[in-house]
Computed example of a mutant assay.
Amino acid sequence: MGIFKRMKEDMDTVFEQDPAARSYTEVLLTYSGLHAIWAHRLSHFFFKRRLFFIARAISQVSRFFTGIEIHPGAIIGRKFFIDHGMGVVVGETCEIGDNVTIFQGVTLGGTGKEKGKRHPTIKDNAMITTGAKVLGNITIGSSSKVGAGSIVLKDVPDYSTVVGVPGRVVIQNGEKVKKNLDHQKLPDPVADRCDRLQEEIDVLREEIAKLKEVKQNDNHHL
């Protein structure tokens, strides 16, 4: 597909995804997500030719103007749509399929513990909503959705919806997964820390009681 046809397809994708889009002129001049995608295509062109400095320079200029950071090494398919976009981060080894939508504040990043392929793979037709963090060499399945604010650290099957911290599948193949809907069982780090402190206090109390008992016995012998 030629460059101008691809650009036209990108703008048509905006109209398909965003009911607020009114004209091609508006989309062309004011949609930062679209500008970031076009800049990425250019930076990726240089990245594949091992012109890394030029690729990163283009990426950083795009980040400055759009608030969206896409590493030049990321592989992105057709009809990719970034809605609003501010704060979006896409890592170097990300692979994004066709017709994928992500919203503002989304991070497709690494965990800091991996080498090589260390960022997510997002399959066709997936949607990653506002503020979600998808971390590590994991796969978000085709036509799956990640709920707002979720942190996903494990693979998500096709046709699934995942929510929460950490992310849990709540819908799969159109059916609710009831065992994952108990939000009261979501991790609470503050409560966990308080429980550990209480356990340590209980142990100290037992040790103090034993020391007092030993001291009293010694006093009796005296």
Rank of each mutant, 00 (worst) to 15 (best):
S143M: 06
T13P: 02
V203F: 07
L181G: 07
E16M: 07
G164E: 05
L42T: 03
L51V: 07
R49I: 10
P187M: 14
Q172S: 13
G136R: 02
K133G: 01
R50H: 09
N137D: 15
V88W: 01
L153Q: 09
I54T: 08
R205A: 10
I37S: 00
F47G: 03
I54F: 03
K176Y: 05
I82F: 02
A191H: 04
P72Q: 11
R196I: 08
I128Q: 03
V90K: 00
T121Q: 08
T30R: 09
Y31K: 15
P72E: 04
T139L: 11
N217H: 10
I37K: 00
G97F: 12
E207K: 15
H40C: 06
D124Y: 10
D155A: 13
R196K: 14
K154M: 06
S150R: 04
L28K: 11
H35E: 11
V89D: 04
T139P: 01
R56N: 06
Y24L: 14
D98Y: 08
F80W: 05
V170Y: 03
R22H: 12
D182M: 13
K48Q: 13
D192K: 13
N180C: 04
P19W: 07
A57W: 02
T101C: 09
T107Y: 01
V169C: 13
R118M: 12
V27G: 05
P187S: 14
V146W: 00
